[in-house]
Design a binder for these strands. Structure first.
Length: 463
RNA sequence: GGCUGAGUGGCAGAGUGGUUAUGCAGCGGUUUGCAAAACCGUGUACCUCGGUUCAAUUCCGGGCUCAGCCUCCA
């Protein structure tokens, strides 16, 4: 029985799909004006893991992750670069897809773009005006009337009086109430714009997600997710817009993943303490990043550091080493005992940290089997690989993973050169010339190559 | 100031009202020409002060500390 922590209630709840056997999930994706950083990677990996597990549980999943391709930052950056917004956004969509592919994130079923949903956005705003939930300001911006929605603040646990009291920014004169937020921004000269009943302009940030989620998944759907920082105001505003325009319930379950931190501080653009995915890929294999992300619970803070990534790498190496020494052609059904335990972990609000501890237990059990061709060894192997598939891990050929070179690795030895050294060393060993054998091993070690002498011969890996 | 969430062994990170997380590192051993890998053994962790209880790291209350949201942010 799957339980999910719902931000609306602050508790784990038994998950019951609106339509039995189906799950509709919308996740707030990227604003494409720069490279993805590790914080973005976390959203992509976490919700990818969730979609994979839901599918694995036999549910028919509709997973939508939007792309914000029009907003203030995009306009500003395009101006800086002296390019059009579509040139800019297309470039970074390509980059985003490269990063997500590297991280073994499967494509969502639908990746709607704001600029391609103007009719739906305009229609929703019109409905909100018709229903007296929105008004046109003196500057021709359209604003949502927060006081018209009774449940405003329910998701974020805020009440409107306190929000007004805590108001920290200069109040815009055009708004009736400081809490009101913009649905449609009138175009300034030389800004990209779309025609609307309120003149040329562009959508506010929140409305696009309301319009696209209901357009893609229907007014009422199962799960809405995103980073914790979107809970307020973005998701609060989405609820207000959607519920007021459709008159129906919006998302049943709200999921928010925790932040990635650097030195106990949130990783963010404005603090400048972010590391891009491609930057980290210079030093670590993509799967190490994915493993690192999944090795803590999705709602916990995740501390980014080289040490922690190194540790993730060591742990992952152990798993791959077990698979390397296991029969490559192992087949059969995963062991029920482990599958039940694994599912129990995942059913408990997607506890991947605990699930991964099972992978280690499996690896140990597998390593203990002296006869790797036994039925038991095959079953353990199949089970370990199966869990890897569900989590999007352990998909590489083990030897390939263990010998893979990261872009920035310093050694310039190719496989042939390494094999030559190994052959030379084997010959020295045969002649009991251990001094020379050790010399060769030390030389390789200084290049980051480790050797293992096994009954089947000498094998190597990169550190 | 308001509202969230968190404080676990050297580090990372789960979890639990009384019994082993797991990983990394360390130490001892088996194995090895020596290593490596693997396996075995090894750690009296649960911020603090009260309360509830036969029993609390786990529940309740106060305190301290940290992070986040309240402004664009995954």
């Amino acid at each position: 029985m799957l339980k999910i922590h719902n931000s609306l209630s602050g508790q784990k709840e038994v998950f019951t799909p609106i339509e039995p056997g189906k799950v509709s999930m919308y996740v707030c994706g990227m604003t494409v004006y720069d490279f993805c950083h590790i914080g973005h990677a976390r959203v992509m990996v976490v919700f990818d893991m969730i979609a994979r597990y839901l599918r694995n549980s036999g549910l028919n999943v509709s997973y939508v992750r939007n792309i914000t391709d029009i907003d203030d930052k995009i306009i500003a950056r395009a101006n800086e670069n002296d390019e059009t917004i579509s040139e800019l956004t297309e470039r970074f969509i390509v980059a985003m897809n490269e990063d997500s592919d590297a991280l073994r994130v499967l494509s969502p079923d639908n990746e709607p773009k704001a600029t391609q949903h103007m009719p739906q956005i305009i229609e929703m705003i019109s409905t909100l005006i018709d229903k007296n939930h929105a008004y046109v300001g003196s500057n021709n911006d359209v604003y949502f009337d927060v006081s018209s929605f009774e449940n405003y603040g329910r998701l974020s646990g805020k009440n409107t009086d306190e929000l007004r009291a805590g108001e920290r920014v200069a109040v815009q004169q055009e708004k009736d109430d400081p809490l009101d937020f913009v649905l449609w921004k009138a175009a300034k000269p030389d800004e990209p714009s779309w025609a609307s009943p309120w003149g040329e302009g562009r959508p506010g940030w929140h409305i696009e997600c309301s319009a696209m989620s209901t357009h893609c998944l229907g007014n009422h759907f199962d799960i809405h997710g995103g980073g914790q920082d979107l809970q307020f105001p973005h998701h609060e505003n989405e609820i207000a817009q959607s519920v007021c325009s459709t008159g129906e319930a919006f998302a049943n379950v709200w999921m928010h993943n925790g932040f990635v931190r650097v030195d106990e501080e949130k990783m963010s653009k404005s603090l400048g303490n972010f590391f891009t995915v491609r930057e980290v890929l210079q030093k670590f294999q993509p799967e190490v990043i994915r493993f690192f992300i999944l090795s803590s619970h999705y709602r916990s803070p995740l501390n980014y550091s080289i040490d922690n990534l190194e540790e993730a790498k060591s742990a992952l190496n152990g798993l791959y080493t077990a698979l390397r020494d296991a029969p490559a052609d192992a087949s059969g059904e995963p062991l029920k005992k482990y599958v039940d335990e694994f599912n129990a972990c995942m059913d408990d609000d997607f506890n991947t940290a605990k699930a991964i501890s099972l992978l280690h237990e499996l690896a140990r059990d597998l390593n203990k089997k002296s006869d790797k061709s036994s039925k038991e060894a095959a079953e353990l192997t199949v089970t370990l690989r199966y869990f890897g598939t569900v989590l999007g891990l352990l998909q590489d050929e083990p030897q390939k993973f263990l010998q893979a070179k990261s872009d920035a690795s310093t050694d310039d030895l190719d496989e042939v050169a390494i094999q030559n050294f190994i052959d030379e060393r084997v010959a020295a060993k045969t002649n009991k010339n251990y001094e020379k054998a050790d010399q060769i091993r030390d030389h390789l070690a200084s290049q980051g190559i480790s050797l293992e002498d096994t009954p089947q011969g000498t094998i190597w890996r990169r550190n």
